[in-house]
């Protein structure tokens, strides 16, 4: 099999990223200046640069693991046109699995939280990439593709294309696309939901390119216009300190594991972010549950007041 010499698509995409950020900034200047914040933008872009540097350090490790996994492949899939398409679909499913785990397992979240720690949602947020992905062994989610027989060069190229697609959906400048597009593709609207901290939106819309995975696996939520979206993380950082922003969750894990009773130590690594052995913090599930209970209560009181307006009124004395 001839292995083509594939370029890194991200190298070619970067000038486009910069141009689109400038265009979005001009849009923000005219429409909504608060959508950008200079220090936040600098932090996000520094995340991106640091992620690139971290990538250079771990590249040889990723290549070594990829080639090792490829040696155990079930078959050899050629560099044929259909293989590229198939690889793109399966890689996007693998991304969904990674992304869902990145929100549901604190170990992976410690790395992925970097991408969510901005209280703004704009194209610079897309470049807020982790520095610790390799340490968190996030790449294991792509290993099945190598076992299947897709060449590491193809998997790396497709992964980069997937990442490039996800850049442009980090914007509030685009409302919604036609229904057929929103039904299949991940869009700015769907991804705004993913970055939201509103209880109704927590841990939803994990898709990379195709939103169909969320629809299939029951994690899809539609953006609603009635409720303004708040971005960031449940406990906002409140700092632009780059190093703290990068490592805060790892520090949190270390502190929790250190202070927890022996039988609960591992729970602070593999359980959901927010989980504690004594229930002293909240997870996204418990926050959503409280929100759902509140909504149910509002509906029941509004329907009972509609049926019997007097009954719903506060009683004097």
């Amino acid at each position: 099999m001839t292995i083509p010499n594939l370029p890194n698509p991200i190298d070619y995409a970067v000038p486009g990223f910069i141009l689109l950020i400038i265009i979005e900034m001009i849009w923000a200047k005219r429409r909504a200046p608060e959508k950008y914040e200079p220090k936040d933008t600098l932090t996000s872009l520094a995340f991106g640069l640091g992620s690139t540097v971290a990538g250079l350090f771990v590249a040889s490790g990723v290549i070594a693991v990829s080639l090792w996994a490829y040696d155990f492949r079930l078959m050899t899939i050629p560099f044929a046109w259909w293989a590229w398409i198939l690889c793109f679909f399966i890689d996007d499913l693998a991304y969904y699995a990674f992304h869902r785990s990145a929100h549901r397992v604190r170990w992976f979240w410690a790395s992925h939280v970097n991408h969510h720690s901005s209280q703004h949602y704009n194209l610079s947020t897309a470049l807020r990439q982790t520095w610790t992905g390799f340490f968190a062994i996030s790449f294991i989610f792509r290993v099945p593709l190598l076992f299947l027989g897709f060449h590491p060069a193809m998997v790396a190229f497709i992964g980069a294309v997937n990442l490039i697609y996800q850049f442009w959906i980090h914007t509030e400048a685009i409302d919604r696309f036609p229904r057929w597009f929103e039904a299949v593709m991940n869009t700015p609207s769907h991804h705004r939901v993913h970055h939201a901290t509103n209880p109704r939106y927590l841990d939803r819309n994990y898709a990379g390119v195709f939103i169909i995975w969320d629809r299939m696996f029951g994690t899809f939520t539609q953006e609603v216009y009635e409720e303004p979206i708040r971005y960031g993380i449940v406990k906002q950082l409140g700092t632009f300190n780059l190093l703290w922003s990068v490592f805060h969750e790892w520090v949190g894990i270390a502190q929790d594991v250190w202070s927890a009773p022996w039988r609960h130590k591992l729970g602070y690594i593999w359980r959901q972010p927010g989980w504690t052995h004594d229930g002293s913090r909240e997870t996204s599930d418990t926050i959503r549950q409280r929100w759902q209970e509140e909504q149910a209560w509002k509906i029941s009181t509004s329907s009972s007041s509609a049926a019997d307006p007097v009954a719903a009124q506060p009683q004097a004395g």
Binding site: I18, I22, M25, K35, Y36, P38, K39, L42, L45, L49
Partner: peptide, 24 residues
């Protein structure tokens, strides 16, 4: 990497120049 660093500084400077962020 040097060009990338200059680019991100330029973008942050542009955000400041455009007075983005406002006064909340």
């Amino acid at each position: 990497l040097g060009v990338s660093l200059l680019s991100i500084l330029a973008l942050a400077w542009l955000a400041k120049l455009l007075n983005l962020g406002g006064d909340l």
